[in-house]
């Protein structure tokens, strides 16, 4: 464990908490893409199946359970409890066009052709594009509540910090995983446009307006 990965995991945890607080407090999931939340649940489910057969550390196990519970909890809030506030007309990204390519690529480019390894690889590829429906929704509605932009900033920061973790691990532990690194860079690049708007607008107290 290193400071970059710890900060990344905490940033990820904070993002999930911000989202749950936003939905619970405002009793609304307006501006949130349910499609992205479904993709995140698929990502964590396919990645954390090793909970049953691999114990890394208490921290690792607890965080996996928290991420799984929070992602399913968010889907419950969005598609059941506060279903009436779900923006079904704007949340129209075709996630099958993200799931299928990630699955095919995981079968072709992976470290080992074993079920758990293929599922882990699939989850890595899918996570790198899982935010697209959310960014698509924000661009379609043209704006986002500030708390939603804080959620997105934390979520984008998590994998950006992981890049520093991978650099650190390469030099300090001579360990690297190209699949995770390439997918993590793609994932972070997808946030760049948002990061720019967040830093130039939201941090100055303005509303996040995307050129529709």
């Amino acid at each position: 464990m290193n400071i970059f990965r710890l900060l990344g995991d905490l940033s990820h945890l904070l993002a999930i908490i911000i989202l749950l607080v936003k939905i619970w407090k405002t009793r609304s999931c307006a501006g949130i893409s349910g499609k992205s939340q479904i993709l995140f649940a698929v990502v964590y489910t396919s990645r954390y199946l090793d909970l049953i057969n691999a114990f890394i550390s208490p921290y690792n196990t607890i965080m996996k359970i928290v991420f799984l519970a929070a992602s399913y909890g968010t889907i419950y809030l969005m598609y059941m409890k506060f279903k009436a506030t779900y923006d079904v007309n704007h949340d129209t990204f075709r996630i099958e066009f993200l799931i299928a390519p990630a699955a095919v690529l995981a079968l072709i480019v992976n470290h080992a052709f074993e079920p758990l390894e293929i599922l882990w690889t699939f989850s890595i590829y899918l996570e790198s594009v899982a935010i697209l429906p959310q960014l698509f929704l924000v661009s379609k509605t043209g704006e986002a509540e500030s708390i939603t932009s804080h959620y997105l900033f934390m979520l984008g920061s998590y994998r950006a910090l992981y890049i520093f973790n991978w650099i650190y691990r390469y030099y300090a532990e001579n360990h690297y995983d190209l699949i995770a690194i390439v997918a993590g860079i793609v994932q972070t690049v997808l946030y760049c446009d948002f990061f720019y708007l967040y830093i130039t607008k939201v941090l100055k107290g303005k509303k996040l307006q995307l050129p529709a």
Partner: peptide, 10 residues
């Protein structure tokens, strides 16, 4: 390149 046996990252 170290063989990836166990993924210890979240």
């Amino acid at each position: 390149n170290m063989k990836i046996h166990q993924h210890d990252e979240l």
